[in-house]
Design a protein around this nucleic acid. Structure first.
Length: 554
RNA sequence: GUCCUAGUAGCUCAGGGGAUAGAGCGACGGCCUCCUAAGCCGUAGGUCGCAGGUUCGAUUCCUGCCUGGGACGCCA
Protein backbone atom coordinates (compact mmCIF):
# COMPACT_ATOMS: atom_id res chain seq x y z
CA UNK A 1 0.00 0.00 0.00
CA UNK A 2 2.80 2.35 0.92
CA UNK A 3 4.33 1.65 -2.46
CA UNK A 4 1.17 2.89 -4.16
CA UNK A 5 1.25 6.04 -2.05
CA UNK A 6 4.87 6.67 -2.96
CA UNK A 7 4.08 6.27 -6.65
CA UNK A 8 1.17 8.65 -6.37
CA UNK A 9 3.28 11.24 -4.55
CA UNK A 10 6.09 10.82 -7.04
CA UNK A 11 3.90 11.96 -9.91
CA UNK A 12 3.32 15.23 -8.07
CA UNK A 13 6.70 15.83 -6.45
CA UNK A 14 9.63 17.66 -8.05
CA UNK A 15 12.07 15.60 -5.97
CA UNK A 16 12.37 11.80 -5.64
CA UNK A 17 10.28 10.32 -2.82
CA UNK A 18 12.09 7.80 -0.63
CA UNK A 19 10.06 5.27 1.36
CA UNK A 20 11.32 6.62 4.69
CA UNK A 21 9.92 10.07 3.89
CA UNK A 22 6.35 8.80 3.95
CA UNK A 23 4.95 8.34 7.44
CA UNK A 24 1.71 7.58 9.19
CA UNK A 25 0.13 10.66 10.70
CA UNK A 26 -0.33 11.06 14.42
CA UNK A 27 -4.10 10.97 14.28
CA UNK A 28 -6.52 9.40 11.88
CA UNK A 29 -8.26 12.72 11.18
CA UNK A 30 -4.99 13.74 9.53
CA UNK A 31 -5.35 11.04 6.92
CA UNK A 32 -3.78 7.67 6.22
CA UNK A 33 -0.34 8.72 5.07
CA UNK A 34 1.65 11.92 5.30
CA UNK A 35 4.64 13.48 3.61
CA UNK A 36 6.53 16.10 5.63
CA UNK A 37 8.05 18.60 3.22
CA UNK A 38 10.64 20.21 5.51
CA UNK A 39 13.60 18.32 4.14
CA UNK A 40 12.81 19.43 0.59
CA UNK A 41 12.67 23.08 1.51
CA UNK A 42 16.41 23.65 1.31
CA UNK A 43 17.02 22.18 -2.14
CA UNK A 44 13.84 23.65 -3.61
CA UNK A 45 14.41 27.01 -1.95
CA UNK A 46 10.73 27.26 -1.08
CA UNK A 47 8.81 27.13 2.16
CA UNK A 48 7.61 23.68 3.28
CA UNK A 49 4.09 25.09 3.36
CA UNK A 50 4.23 26.06 -0.30
CA UNK A 51 5.80 22.77 -1.37
CA UNK A 52 3.11 20.83 0.45
CA UNK A 53 0.39 22.90 -1.18
CA UNK A 54 1.82 22.35 -4.65
CA UNK A 55 2.18 18.60 -4.18
CA UNK A 56 -1.27 18.26 -2.63
CA UNK A 57 -2.83 20.13 -5.52
CA UNK A 58 -1.37 17.89 -8.20
CA UNK A 59 -1.62 14.44 -6.57
CA UNK A 60 -3.99 12.32 -8.56
CA UNK A 61 -4.34 8.59 -8.26
CA UNK A 62 -7.28 6.16 -8.24
CA UNK A 63 -6.35 4.91 -4.77
CA UNK A 64 -6.13 8.41 -3.30
CA UNK A 65 -9.40 9.98 -2.28
CA UNK A 66 -7.95 13.37 -1.42
CA UNK A 67 -4.76 15.18 -0.51
CA UNK A 68 -4.55 18.06 1.94
CA UNK A 69 -1.70 20.42 2.71
CA UNK A 70 -1.44 21.24 6.43
CA UNK A 71 1.49 22.99 8.11
CA UNK A 72 4.04 21.77 5.61
CA UNK A 73 2.64 18.24 5.44
CA UNK A 74 0.84 16.58 2.58
CA UNK A 75 -1.86 14.45 4.17
CA UNK A 76 -3.30 11.71 2.03
CA UNK A 77 -6.66 10.04 2.43
CA UNK A 78 -7.06 6.69 0.73
CA UNK A 79 -10.06 5.62 -1.32
CA UNK A 80 -11.42 3.25 1.33
CA UNK A 81 -13.50 0.76 -0.69
CA UNK A 82 -10.73 0.51 -3.28
CA UNK A 83 -8.30 -0.54 -0.53
CA UNK A 84 -10.70 -2.68 1.49
CA UNK A 85 -12.07 -4.89 -1.24
CA UNK A 86 -8.83 -6.44 -2.54
CA UNK A 87 -7.40 -6.74 0.98
CA UNK A 88 -10.35 -8.69 2.38
CA UNK A 89 -10.43 -10.76 -0.75
CA UNK A 90 -6.82 -11.82 -0.38
CA UNK A 91 -7.09 -12.53 3.37
CA UNK A 92 -10.14 -14.71 2.79
CA UNK A 93 -8.36 -16.52 -0.02
CA UNK A 94 -5.10 -17.04 1.88
CA UNK A 95 -6.59 -17.78 5.28
CA UNK A 96 -3.98 -18.56 7.93
CA UNK A 97 -1.27 -18.26 5.27
CA UNK A 98 -1.82 -14.48 5.11
CA UNK A 99 1.48 -12.86 6.09
CA UNK A 100 3.60 -15.87 5.12
CA UNK A 101 6.80 -15.07 3.27
CA UNK A 102 9.89 -16.69 1.79
CA UNK A 103 12.22 -14.26 3.53
CA UNK A 104 14.28 -17.04 5.10
CA UNK A 105 14.88 -18.96 1.86
CA UNK A 106 14.69 -22.27 3.76
CA UNK A 107 17.73 -21.44 5.87
CA UNK A 108 18.10 -23.38 9.11
CA UNK A 109 18.09 -21.45 12.37
CA UNK A 110 18.95 -23.32 15.54
CA UNK A 111 17.33 -21.98 18.68
CA UNK A 112 18.86 -22.64 22.05
CA UNK A 113 15.91 -22.25 24.38
CA UNK A 114 14.24 -23.22 27.64
CA UNK A 115 17.23 -25.12 29.02
CA UNK A 116 16.09 -25.85 32.57
CA UNK A 117 18.51 -27.41 35.01
CA UNK A 118 17.77 -30.91 36.22
CA UNK A 119 17.17 -31.31 39.91
CA UNK A 120 15.99 -27.74 39.98
CA UNK A 121 12.47 -26.43 39.59
CA UNK A 122 11.22 -24.91 36.36
CA UNK A 123 11.30 -21.23 37.20
CA UNK A 124 9.64 -18.15 35.78
CA UNK A 125 12.96 -17.33 34.15
CA UNK A 126 12.89 -20.56 32.15
CA UNK A 127 9.37 -19.65 31.11
CA UNK A 128 10.66 -16.55 29.36
CA UNK A 129 13.25 -18.47 27.41
CA UNK A 130 10.73 -21.17 26.52
CA UNK A 131 7.87 -19.00 25.31
CA UNK A 132 10.06 -16.43 23.57
CA UNK A 133 12.00 -19.19 21.83
CA UNK A 134 8.84 -21.01 20.85
CA UNK A 135 7.28 -17.89 19.38
CA UNK A 136 10.45 -16.99 17.50
CA UNK A 137 10.46 -20.51 16.05
CA UNK A 138 6.87 -20.06 14.84
CA UNK A 139 7.71 -16.66 13.37
CA UNK A 140 10.77 -18.01 11.60
CA UNK A 141 8.73 -20.81 10.12
CA UNK A 142 6.12 -18.36 8.85
CA UNK A 143 8.87 -16.30 7.27
CA UNK A 144 10.35 -19.21 5.37
CA UNK A 145 13.12 -20.37 7.71
CA UNK A 146 13.56 -23.86 9.11
CA UNK A 147 13.77 -23.50 12.90
CA UNK A 148 15.37 -26.20 15.05
CA UNK A 149 14.35 -25.96 18.69
CA UNK A 150 17.06 -27.24 20.99
CA UNK A 151 16.46 -27.76 24.68
CA UNK A 152 19.98 -27.47 26.03
CA UNK A 153 19.18 -29.14 29.33
CA UNK A 154 21.43 -28.10 32.20
CA UNK A 155 22.41 -31.61 33.18
CA UNK A 156 26.12 -31.18 33.85
CA UNK A 157 28.44 -29.04 35.86
CA UNK A 158 29.87 -28.54 39.32
CA UNK A 159 26.38 -28.14 40.76
CA UNK A 160 25.86 -31.88 40.33
CA UNK A 161 28.96 -32.57 42.32
CA UNK A 162 27.44 -30.46 45.06
CA UNK A 163 24.13 -32.24 44.74
CA UNK A 164 25.74 -35.68 44.89
CA UNK A 165 27.64 -34.65 47.98
CA UNK A 166 24.50 -33.32 49.62
CA UNK A 167 22.48 -36.44 48.73
CA UNK A 168 25.11 -38.75 50.14
CA UNK A 169 25.31 -36.76 53.34
CA UNK A 170 21.65 -36.03 54.03
CA UNK A 171 19.41 -37.54 51.34
CA UNK A 172 17.08 -40.52 51.30
CA UNK A 173 15.90 -42.51 48.31
CA UNK A 174 12.27 -42.60 49.41
CA UNK A 175 11.99 -38.88 49.71
CA UNK A 176 13.48 -38.27 46.30
CA UNK A 177 11.09 -40.80 44.77
CA UNK A 178 8.13 -39.19 46.47
CA UNK A 179 8.83 -35.66 45.30
CA UNK A 180 12.02 -35.52 43.22
CA UNK A 181 12.63 -31.90 42.37
CA UNK A 182 11.37 -30.54 45.64
CA UNK A 183 13.63 -32.87 47.63
CA UNK A 184 16.67 -32.32 45.44
CA UNK A 185 16.20 -28.58 45.63
CA UNK A 186 16.10 -28.72 49.41
CA UNK A 187 19.33 -30.69 49.41
CA UNK A 188 20.90 -28.10 47.15
CA UNK A 189 19.79 -25.26 49.37
CA UNK A 190 21.04 -27.03 52.47
CA UNK A 191 24.41 -27.59 50.79
CA UNK A 192 24.84 -23.87 50.24
CA UNK A 193 23.73 -23.04 53.75
CA UNK A 194 26.21 -25.43 55.28
CA UNK A 195 28.98 -24.45 52.86
CA UNK A 196 28.82 -20.91 54.22
CA UNK A 197 30.05 -22.20 57.54
CA UNK A 198 32.29 -24.94 56.17
CA UNK A 199 34.08 -23.99 52.95
CA UNK A 200 35.60 -27.44 52.58
CA UNK A 201 32.18 -28.63 51.37
CA UNK A 202 32.76 -26.74 48.15
CA UNK A 203 35.98 -28.65 47.54
CA UNK A 204 34.12 -31.86 48.23
CA UNK A 205 31.48 -30.87 45.69
CA UNK A 206 34.07 -30.06 43.06
CA UNK A 207 35.76 -33.39 43.68
CA UNK A 208 32.45 -35.21 43.29
CA UNK A 209 31.87 -33.52 39.96
CA UNK A 210 35.34 -34.48 38.79
CA UNK A 211 34.53 -38.09 39.74
CA UNK A 212 31.27 -37.85 37.81
CA UNK A 213 33.09 -36.50 34.80
CA UNK A 214 35.62 -39.33 35.05
CA UNK A 215 32.77 -41.82 34.91
CA UNK A 216 32.62 -43.14 38.45
CA UNK A 217 29.71 -45.68 38.32
CA UNK A 218 27.90 -44.77 41.53
CA UNK A 219 27.97 -41.06 40.76
CA UNK A 220 26.83 -41.71 37.22
CA UNK A 221 23.89 -43.85 38.38
CA UNK A 222 22.68 -41.19 40.78
CA UNK A 223 23.03 -38.50 38.13
CA UNK A 224 21.00 -40.56 35.65
CA UNK A 225 18.27 -41.09 38.18
CA UNK A 226 18.05 -37.39 39.06
CA UNK A 227 17.86 -36.57 35.37
CA UNK A 228 15.02 -38.95 34.58
CA UNK A 229 12.92 -37.75 37.47
CA UNK A 230 13.48 -34.14 36.48
CA UNK A 231 12.66 -34.60 32.81
CA UNK A 232 9.36 -36.22 33.75
CA UNK A 233 8.40 -33.15 35.73
CA UNK A 234 9.45 -30.76 32.96
CA UNK A 235 7.41 -32.67 30.40
CA UNK A 236 4.20 -31.89 32.27
CA UNK A 237 4.93 -28.20 31.86
CA UNK A 238 5.84 -28.45 28.19
CA UNK A 239 2.60 -30.32 27.54
CA UNK A 240 0.66 -27.57 29.25
CA UNK A 241 2.45 -24.87 27.28
CA UNK A 242 2.14 -26.80 24.04
CA UNK A 243 5.87 -26.59 23.37
CA UNK A 244 7.86 -29.33 21.66
CA UNK A 245 11.56 -29.65 20.86
CA UNK A 246 13.61 -31.01 18.00
CA UNK A 247 16.52 -31.90 20.25
CA UNK A 248 17.05 -32.50 23.95
CA UNK A 249 20.82 -32.66 23.66
CA UNK A 250 21.87 -31.13 26.94
CA UNK A 251 25.24 -30.27 28.32
CA UNK A 252 26.14 -33.86 29.15
CA UNK A 253 25.69 -34.79 25.50
CA UNK A 254 28.88 -32.88 24.80
CA UNK A 255 31.03 -34.70 27.34
CA UNK A 256 32.92 -36.65 24.69
CA UNK A 257 32.92 -33.76 22.21
CA UNK A 258 34.90 -31.26 24.24
CA UNK A 259 38.34 -32.80 23.96
CA UNK A 260 38.60 -32.16 20.18
CA UNK A 261 37.72 -28.52 20.81
CA UNK A 262 40.34 -28.20 23.53
CA UNK A 263 42.87 -29.83 21.21
CA UNK A 264 41.99 -27.48 18.37
CA UNK A 265 42.50 -24.51 20.69
CA UNK A 266 45.81 -25.95 21.79
CA UNK A 267 46.88 -26.55 18.19
CA UNK A 268 46.32 -22.93 17.31
CA UNK A 269 48.33 -21.92 20.35
CA UNK A 270 45.38 -20.17 21.94
CA UNK A 271 45.48 -21.93 25.30
CA UNK A 272 47.32 -20.15 28.07
CA UNK A 273 47.93 -21.37 31.57
CA UNK A 274 46.82 -19.03 34.28
CA UNK A 275 46.82 -19.94 37.98
CA UNK A 276 46.72 -23.59 36.97
CA UNK A 277 43.69 -23.18 34.74
CA UNK A 278 43.62 -23.09 30.94
CA UNK A 279 42.22 -19.94 29.38
CA UNK A 280 41.95 -18.21 26.01
CA UNK A 281 43.12 -14.64 26.13
CA UNK A 282 40.70 -12.20 24.54
CA UNK A 283 42.73 -9.05 24.74
CA UNK A 284 42.14 -5.86 26.60
CA UNK A 285 38.43 -5.33 26.15
CA UNK A 286 37.30 -8.65 27.55
CA UNK A 287 38.23 -10.95 30.39
CA UNK A 288 39.81 -14.25 29.32
CA UNK A 289 37.61 -17.25 28.61
CA UNK A 290 38.09 -20.17 30.99
CA UNK A 291 38.39 -23.52 29.23
CA UNK A 292 39.59 -25.88 31.95
CA UNK A 293 39.68 -25.57 35.68
CA UNK A 294 42.91 -26.19 37.57
CA UNK A 295 41.68 -29.69 38.45
CA UNK A 296 41.22 -30.44 34.76
CA UNK A 297 37.41 -30.36 34.82
CA UNK A 298 35.56 -28.54 32.05
CA UNK A 299 33.44 -25.43 32.26
CA UNK A 300 30.30 -23.98 30.74
CA UNK A 301 32.27 -22.24 28.01
CA UNK A 302 34.00 -25.47 27.03
CA UNK A 303 30.68 -27.20 26.52
CA UNK A 304 29.18 -24.25 24.69
CA UNK A 305 32.10 -24.22 22.25
CA UNK A 306 31.62 -27.91 21.61
CA UNK A 307 27.87 -27.41 21.24
CA UNK A 308 28.27 -24.52 18.81
CA UNK A 309 30.62 -26.42 16.51
CA UNK A 310 28.49 -29.55 16.73
CA UNK A 311 25.37 -27.60 15.78
CA UNK A 312 27.14 -26.03 12.83
CA UNK A 313 28.20 -29.40 11.43
CA UNK A 314 24.89 -31.11 12.23
CA UNK A 315 22.49 -28.45 10.97
CA UNK A 316 24.50 -26.15 8.69
CA UNK A 317 22.60 -23.26 10.22
CA UNK A 318 22.46 -19.78 8.68
CA UNK A 319 21.83 -18.42 12.16
CA UNK A 320 22.31 -19.90 15.60
CA UNK A 321 20.45 -18.06 18.31
CA UNK A 322 20.44 -18.36 22.08
CA UNK A 323 17.44 -17.27 24.12
CA UNK A 324 19.23 -16.69 27.39
CA UNK A 325 18.99 -14.04 30.10
CA UNK A 326 20.96 -10.85 29.62
CA UNK A 327 23.16 -11.61 32.61
CA UNK A 328 25.01 -13.97 30.28
CA UNK A 329 25.85 -11.51 27.53
CA UNK A 330 29.54 -11.50 28.40
CA UNK A 331 29.66 -15.26 28.09
CA UNK A 332 28.24 -15.14 24.56
CA UNK A 333 30.60 -12.38 23.52
CA UNK A 334 33.44 -14.53 24.72
CA UNK A 335 32.05 -17.54 22.90
CA UNK A 336 31.95 -15.65 19.61
CA UNK A 337 35.45 -14.27 20.09
CA UNK A 338 36.94 -17.64 20.83
CA UNK A 339 35.24 -19.20 17.79
CA UNK A 340 36.55 -16.33 15.73
CA UNK A 341 40.08 -16.95 16.93
CA UNK A 342 39.64 -20.61 16.07
CA UNK A 343 38.97 -19.50 12.51
CA UNK A 344 35.24 -20.26 12.41
CA UNK A 345 33.86 -17.72 9.94
CA UNK A 346 30.32 -18.64 11.04
CA UNK A 347 30.94 -17.18 14.49
CA UNK A 348 29.23 -14.04 13.20
CA UNK A 349 26.01 -16.01 12.70
CA UNK A 350 25.71 -16.62 16.42
CA UNK A 351 23.31 -14.28 18.15
CA UNK A 352 22.50 -13.99 21.81
CA UNK A 353 18.91 -12.88 22.27
CA UNK A 354 18.89 -11.58 25.80
CA UNK A 355 15.92 -10.90 28.02
CA UNK A 356 15.53 -9.21 31.36
CA UNK A 357 15.33 -11.15 34.56
CA UNK A 358 12.27 -11.69 36.61
CA UNK A 359 12.91 -9.99 39.90
CA UNK A 360 11.37 -10.50 43.28
CA UNK A 361 11.37 -7.42 45.51
CA UNK A 362 13.77 -5.75 43.07
CA UNK A 363 16.33 -8.54 43.39
CA UNK A 364 17.40 -11.52 41.36
CA UNK A 365 15.70 -14.71 42.45
CA UNK A 366 18.24 -17.17 43.72
CA UNK A 367 17.81 -20.93 43.53
CA UNK A 368 20.53 -21.37 46.08
CA UNK A 369 18.63 -19.46 48.72
CA UNK A 370 15.31 -21.03 47.76
CA UNK A 371 13.89 -17.68 46.69
CA UNK A 372 12.11 -18.85 43.60
CA UNK A 373 8.63 -18.87 42.11
CA UNK A 374 7.50 -22.10 40.54
CA UNK A 375 5.97 -21.89 37.11
CA UNK A 376 3.74 -24.88 37.57
CA UNK A 377 2.01 -23.32 40.57
CA UNK A 378 1.47 -20.11 38.64
CA UNK A 379 -0.04 -21.98 35.70
CA UNK A 380 -2.33 -23.96 37.96
CA UNK A 381 -3.57 -20.81 39.61
CA UNK A 382 -4.23 -19.18 36.25
CA UNK A 383 -6.24 -22.17 35.06
CA UNK A 384 -8.31 -22.21 38.23
CA UNK A 385 -9.09 -18.53 37.83
CA UNK A 386 -10.16 -19.12 34.23
CA UNK A 387 -12.39 -21.90 35.46
CA UNK A 388 -14.09 -19.63 37.97
CA UNK A 389 -14.58 -17.00 35.28
CA UNK A 390 -16.25 -19.49 32.99
CA UNK A 391 -18.59 -20.63 35.76
CA UNK A 392 -19.55 -17.03 36.38
CA UNK A 393 -19.81 -15.80 32.80
CA UNK A 394 -20.65 -18.74 30.59
CA UNK A 395 -21.67 -21.75 32.72
CA UNK A 396 -23.30 -23.56 29.80
CA UNK A 397 -20.04 -23.76 27.87
CA UNK A 398 -19.40 -27.30 26.66
CA UNK A 399 -15.67 -28.04 26.96
CA UNK A 400 -15.01 -25.98 30.08
CA UNK A 401 -11.82 -27.67 31.16
CA UNK A 402 -10.15 -27.39 27.82
CA UNK A 403 -11.10 -23.73 27.48
CA UNK A 404 -9.98 -22.95 31.04
CA UNK A 405 -6.60 -24.44 30.23
CA UNK A 406 -6.29 -22.44 27.02
CA UNK A 407 -7.30 -19.20 28.72
CA UNK A 408 -5.24 -19.69 31.87
CA UNK A 409 -2.10 -20.63 29.98
CA UNK A 410 -2.83 -17.89 27.44
CA UNK A 411 -2.88 -15.28 30.19
CA UNK A 412 0.54 -16.33 31.47
CA UNK A 413 2.07 -16.67 28.02
CA UNK A 414 0.81 -13.33 26.86
CA UNK A 415 1.80 -11.40 29.96
CA UNK A 416 5.34 -12.54 29.29
CA UNK A 417 5.39 -12.06 25.53
CA UNK A 418 3.70 -8.68 25.28
CA UNK A 419 6.71 -6.96 26.69
CA UNK A 420 10.04 -8.13 25.56
CA UNK A 421 12.33 -5.28 26.21
CA UNK A 422 15.55 -6.21 27.78
CA UNK A 423 14.74 -4.69 31.07
CA UNK A 424 13.80 -6.70 34.09
CA UNK A 425 10.31 -7.57 35.18
CA UNK A 426 9.15 -7.41 38.73
CA UNK A 427 7.32 -10.64 39.47
CA UNK A 428 3.66 -9.79 39.96
CA UNK A 429 1.26 -12.71 40.06
CA UNK A 430 -1.80 -10.49 40.11
CA UNK A 431 -0.75 -8.83 36.84
CA UNK A 432 -0.08 -12.16 35.20
CA UNK A 433 -3.53 -13.39 36.14
CA UNK A 434 -5.30 -10.32 34.73
CA UNK A 435 -7.99 -11.08 32.20
CA UNK A 436 -8.99 -7.53 31.35
CA UNK A 437 -7.23 -4.93 29.25
CA UNK A 438 -4.10 -5.83 27.32
CA UNK A 439 -4.15 -9.52 28.11
CA UNK A 440 -4.26 -12.93 26.50
CA UNK A 441 -7.86 -13.55 27.54
CA UNK A 442 -8.85 -10.24 25.94
CA UNK A 443 -7.51 -11.50 22.61
CA UNK A 444 -9.22 -14.83 23.03
CA UNK A 445 -12.46 -13.17 24.03
CA UNK A 446 -12.36 -10.87 21.00
CA UNK A 447 -11.85 -13.84 18.76
CA UNK A 448 -14.65 -15.80 20.40
CA UNK A 449 -16.99 -12.86 19.83
CA UNK A 450 -16.05 -12.77 16.17
CA UNK A 451 -16.82 -16.47 15.84
CA UNK A 452 -20.10 -16.00 17.62
CA UNK A 453 -21.21 -13.36 15.13
CA UNK A 454 -20.21 -15.54 12.20
CA UNK A 455 -22.07 -18.54 13.65
CA UNK A 456 -25.25 -16.54 14.05
CA UNK A 457 -24.98 -14.79 10.69
CA UNK A 458 -25.31 -18.01 8.73
CA UNK A 459 -24.24 -16.43 5.48
CA UNK A 460 -26.69 -13.54 5.73
CA UNK A 461 -25.93 -10.30 3.95
CA UNK A 462 -26.73 -9.00 0.55
CA UNK A 463 -24.78 -5.87 -0.30
CA UNK A 464 -21.25 -5.16 -1.43
CA UNK A 465 -19.13 -2.26 -0.18
CA UNK A 466 -20.53 1.15 -0.78
CA UNK A 467 -18.79 2.99 1.99
CA UNK A 468 -16.35 2.21 4.79
CA UNK A 469 -16.93 3.93 8.14
CA UNK A 470 -14.20 4.90 10.63
CA UNK A 471 -14.61 1.79 12.80
CA UNK A 472 -14.32 -0.44 9.78
CA UNK A 473 -11.43 1.54 8.39
CA UNK A 474 -9.46 1.17 11.62
CA UNK A 475 -9.75 -2.59 11.29
CA UNK A 476 -8.79 -2.50 7.60
CA UNK A 477 -5.62 -0.53 8.29
CA UNK A 478 -4.71 -2.94 11.07
CA UNK A 479 -5.30 -6.00 8.91
CA UNK A 480 -3.18 -4.45 6.23
CA UNK A 481 -0.22 -4.15 8.58
CA UNK A 482 -0.08 -7.79 9.62
CA UNK A 483 2.52 -8.99 7.08
CA UNK A 484 4.82 -6.12 8.04
CA UNK A 485 4.34 -6.94 11.74
CA UNK A 486 5.34 -10.55 11.05
CA UNK A 487 8.37 -9.42 9.09
CA UNK A 488 9.54 -7.02 11.79
CA UNK A 489 8.94 -9.53 14.59
CA UNK A 490 11.02 -12.04 12.63
CA UNK A 491 14.00 -9.87 11.78
CA UNK A 492 14.05 -8.27 15.21
CA UNK A 493 13.57 -11.63 16.95
CA UNK A 494 10.78 -10.00 18.92
CA UNK A 495 7.41 -11.67 19.56
CA UNK A 496 6.20 -8.61 21.48
CA UNK A 497 5.67 -6.91 18.11
CA UNK A 498 3.01 -9.52 17.29
CA UNK A 499 1.58 -9.31 20.80
CA UNK A 500 1.08 -5.57 20.53
CA UNK A 501 -0.18 -5.89 16.99
CA UNK A 502 -2.82 -8.37 18.15
CA UNK A 503 -3.94 -6.02 20.91
CA UNK A 504 -4.32 -3.16 18.43
CA UNK A 505 -6.36 -5.32 16.08
CA UNK A 506 -8.55 -6.64 18.90
CA UNK A 507 -9.15 -3.11 20.17
CA UNK A 508 -10.18 -1.94 16.72
CA UNK A 509 -12.51 -4.91 16.41
CA UNK A 510 -14.09 -4.46 19.85
CA UNK A 511 -14.65 -0.80 19.19
CA UNK A 512 -16.43 -1.71 15.95
CA UNK A 513 -18.38 -4.46 17.67
CA UNK A 514 -19.41 -2.23 20.53
CA UNK A 515 -20.63 0.58 18.32
CA UNK A 516 -22.20 -1.19 15.39
CA UNK A 517 -24.70 -3.95 15.62
CA UNK A 518 -23.67 -6.11 12.72
CA UNK A 519 -26.55 -8.55 12.51
CA UNK A 520 -29.45 -6.16 12.98
CA UNK A 521 -28.22 -3.66 10.43
CA UNK A 522 -28.69 -4.62 6.80
CA UNK A 523 -26.28 -1.98 5.55
CA UNK A 524 -23.03 -3.38 4.18
CA UNK A 525 -23.71 -6.64 5.92
CA UNK A 526 -21.78 -9.01 3.71
CA UNK A 527 -18.82 -6.67 3.77
CA UNK A 528 -19.00 -6.52 7.55
CA UNK A 529 -19.22 -10.26 7.89
CA UNK A 530 -16.22 -10.62 5.61
CA UNK A 531 -14.43 -8.11 7.80
CA UNK A 532 -15.25 -10.09 10.94
CA UNK A 533 -14.09 -13.25 9.22
CA UNK A 534 -10.78 -11.58 8.38
CA UNK A 535 -10.37 -10.37 11.95
CA UNK A 536 -10.84 -13.89 13.25
CA UNK A 537 -8.30 -15.24 10.75
CA UNK A 538 -5.60 -12.71 11.59
CA UNK A 539 -6.26 -12.71 15.33
CA UNK A 540 -6.07 -16.49 15.47
CA UNK A 541 -2.90 -16.51 13.43
CA UNK A 542 -1.36 -13.88 15.70
CA UNK A 543 -2.19 -15.97 18.74
CA UNK A 544 -0.81 -19.08 17.07
CA UNK A 545 2.46 -17.23 16.45
CA UNK A 546 2.61 -16.45 20.15
CA UNK A 547 2.00 -20.08 21.04
CA UNK A 548 -1.54 -19.41 22.31
CA UNK A 549 -4.75 -21.32 21.77
CA UNK A 550 -7.83 -19.56 20.43
CA UNK A 551 -11.02 -21.23 21.68
CA UNK A 552 -14.10 -20.73 19.47
CA UNK A 553 -16.21 -19.99 22.52
CA UNK A 554 -15.39 -18.95 26.04
C1' G B 1 36.54 0.62 39.13
C1' U B 2 35.45 -1.32 33.88
C1' C B 3 31.72 -3.05 30.56
C1' C B 4 26.40 -4.08 29.25
C1' U B 5 21.29 -2.48 29.87
C1' A B 6 17.38 0.65 31.15
C1' G B 7 15.14 5.61 33.15
C1' U B 8 8.17 8.24 29.09
C1' A B 9 1.11 9.47 33.11
C1' G B 10 0.12 7.34 40.33
C1' C B 11 1.49 1.94 38.49
C1' U B 12 2.95 -1.52 34.19
C1' C B 13 4.67 -0.44 29.57
C1' A B 14 4.35 1.07 23.91
C1' G B 15 6.35 4.62 20.53
C1' G B 16 10.04 7.34 18.07
C1' G B 17 14.34 13.13 13.79
C1' G B 18 8.98 16.30 12.62
C1' A B 19 2.25 18.55 13.49
C1' U B 20 -1.92 18.22 19.61
C1' A B 21 3.76 11.93 22.89
C1' G B 22 -0.07 6.73 23.09
C1' A B 23 -2.24 2.02 25.46
C1' G B 24 -3.56 -0.95 29.73
C1' C B 25 -4.20 -0.97 35.07
C1' G B 26 -5.82 2.10 39.03
C1' A B 27 -9.42 6.68 40.00
C1' C B 28 -14.01 9.10 38.49
C1' G B 29 -18.68 9.13 35.33
C1' G B 30 -21.86 6.64 31.68
C1' C B 31 -23.64 1.87 28.65
C1' C B 32 -26.49 -5.04 29.05
C1' U B 33 -35.50 -5.35 26.70
C1' C B 34 -29.93 -5.63 21.29
C1' C B 35 -24.45 -10.21 17.86
C1' U B 36 -20.65 -13.23 24.81
C1' A B 37 -20.07 -6.53 29.86
C1' A B 38 -13.25 -11.20 29.99
C1' G B 39 -16.63 -5.70 26.40
C1' C B 40 -17.74 -0.46 24.81
C1' C B 41 -17.93 5.16 25.54
C1' G B 42 -16.17 9.46 28.29
C1' U B 43 -13.15 12.48 32.27
C1' A B 44 -8.72 13.33 35.03
C1' G B 45 -3.39 12.50 34.80
C1' G B 46 3.19 13.70 31.33
C1' U B 47 8.67 20.27 31.30
C1' C B 48 9.53 11.80 27.80
C1' G B 49 16.00 11.20 34.48
C1' C B 50 19.45 15.94 34.32
C1' A B 51 22.93 19.11 31.43
C1' G B 52 25.23 20.24 27.00
C1' G B 53 25.80 19.25 21.47
C1' U B 54 24.27 18.04 16.12
C1' U B 55 19.72 19.69 13.23
C1' C B 56 15.21 24.06 9.89
C1' G B 57 13.19 20.70 13.89
C1' A B 58 15.36 16.21 19.47
C1' U B 59 11.32 12.96 23.90
C1' U B 60 13.89 10.13 19.69
C1' C B 61 20.72 10.79 17.39
C1' C B 62 25.86 12.11 20.08
C1' U B 63 28.67 13.25 24.70
C1' G B 64 28.82 13.82 29.96
C1' C B 65 26.39 13.22 34.63
C1' C B 66 22.69 11.06 38.08
C1' U B 67 19.66 6.67 39.42
C1' G B 68 18.04 1.33 39.09
C1' G B 69 19.50 -3.70 37.40
C1' G B 70 23.22 -7.03 35.66
C1' A B 71 28.16 -8.96 34.36
C1' C B 72 33.35 -8.88 35.35
C1' G B 73 38.71 -16.81 35.95
C1' C B 74 38.11 -21.80 38.02
C1' C B 75 28.97 -21.29 38.75
C1' A B 76 25.82 -21.86 34.54
Amino acid sequence: MKQVVIEALQTASPLPIEPHMVERPLHSEMGDYALPCFSMAKTLRKSPKLIAEEIAASVSHPAIQKAEAVNGYVNLFLERPAVAEPLLHSILAEGAAYGTSTLGADGVVTIDMSSPNIAKPFSMGHLRSTVIGNSIALLLEKSGYRPVKINYIGDWGTQFGKLLTAYRKWGSQEEVEKSPIKTLLQLYIRFHEEAEADASLNDEGRAAFKALEDGEPDALALWKWFKEESLNEFQRIYDLLGVTFDSYNGEAYYNDKMEPVVEALDHKGLLIESDGALVVDLGEEMPPCLIKKSDGATLYATRDLAAATDRKSTYQFVQSIYIVGNEQSLHFQQLKHVLNQMGCDWAQDITHIPFGMILKDGKKMSTRKGKIVLLEEVLEEAIELAQRNIEAKNPSLENKEEVAKAVGVGAILFSDLKQHRKHDIEFDLEKMLQTEGETGPYLQYSCARAHSVLRKANGRGEEGISEVNDYEWDIITQLQQFPEAVRRATVEWDPSIIARYAIDLAQAFNSFYGNIHILSDAANQSFRLALVQCVSIVLEESMRLLGMQAPQEM
